[in-house]
């Protein structure tokens, strides 16, 4: 299967508030160790294969950082 991400973060918009990490039913949204150009640790999902495309992380994100896709 081709590697296509279900959840994509616009890291430069992320302010590291961590709200997305609290709502993920799979507990796969984590804060990255790296920092973006604004000095924030952006949120990320490493375990894309575990994502169920529920969209809750995007729903609570105050900065419209997250796009979520579902396979058709």
């Amino acid at each position: 299967m081709e590697q296509v991400k279900r959840v994509v973060f616009d890291e430069e918009r992320c302010k590291g508030c961590e709200l997305c990490t609290t709502v993920c039913p799979k507990n796969i949204v984590k804060m990255a160790d790296r920092i973006n150009s604004h000095g924030y640790h952006p949120a990320e999902v490493a375990a894309q294969e575990e994502c169920i495309s529920c969209g809750l992380c995007a729903m609570i994100c105050p900065d419209v950082v997250i796009r979520v896709y579902r396979p058709e």
């Binding site: 296509v4 279900r6 495309s53 995007a58 979520v68 896709y69 579902r70 396979p71």
Partner: peptide, 9 residues
């Protein structure tokens, strides 16, 4: 892939 949550126009 279908967009579930995106960036509003």
């Amino acid at each position: 892939m279908k967009l579930v949550a995106g960036y509003p126009d």
